[in-house]
Simulated scan of single mutants.
Amino acid sequence: MIWKILPTLEGLNTSGQNTAVEHLGIVFTEVGEDYLLAEMPVDHRTVQPMRLLHGGVSCVLIETLGSVAGMLCVPNPGSDYIVGTEINASHLRGVGEGGKVFGKVTAVRLGKRVQVWSVEITNEEGKVTCVGRLTCQVMTA
């Protein structure tokens, strides 16, 4: 298990209250030994004018998953925290309004100063719609 702080779905979802996470309808749905899963609706909050999932909102999902996972893996819980320093996303397939997308985050590197996270976003048919990477700097309070 990679987690320094043991996550629970209740705790993960409570932490997103009154934030962009809640506003966009992002809900954590599974905690694995080395991954987190979340889902997000494709609705009026998350689409662009052509009624497709907004690419920037996919980046919000990537940043959310990577940042939350990163905070669970800081070397010194309670004094360390992370900040995102670079994000990229390759949008591979459009997703129309009315369904959901699912994000899975896994670690690429968990260093003392730098973390790199990979996120794969899929549609309801399990097809990859976006792949992203988030780089985080580990900071000490």
Rank of each mutant, 00 (worst) to 15 (best):
V119N: 13
V57Y: 07
Y81D: 10
F28G: 05
I5L: 13
N18A: 15
V114N: 13
E97F: 01
Q115L: 02
T19K: 09
I26F: 02
L6W: 12
E124Y: 10
I5C: 11
V131T: 12
C73A: 08
V47Q: 06
F28I: 07
R45W: 10
V105A: 02
R133L: 05
L36I: 07
C59M: 12
A69P: 13
G32T: 09
G66H: 03
T46S: 01
E120R: 12
G32Q: 02
V57Q: 05
T140Y: 13
V27Q: 14
G56I: 05
D43W: 04
I2S: 14
C136K: 15
Y35K: 09
G99D: 02
C130D: 06
I87Q: 00
V119E: 06
S90F: 01
C136M: 13
V101N: 00
I5H: 05
V74Y: 03
P75V: 06
R109C: 11
N13L: 08
R45L: 06
E63K: 12
P75K: 04
I2R: 09
E86I: 01
N76K: 13
H91Y: 00
G66L: 07
M139T: 12
S79N: 14
E22N: 11
E10K: 14
G25Q: 03
V119Q: 06
V21L: 10
L110P: 08
T8W: 02
G32R: 05
N76L: 15
G70P: 15
S67N: 07
G78K: 02
I82K: 01
V116L: 11
G126I: 14
V31R: 08
C59W: 08
V60W: 08
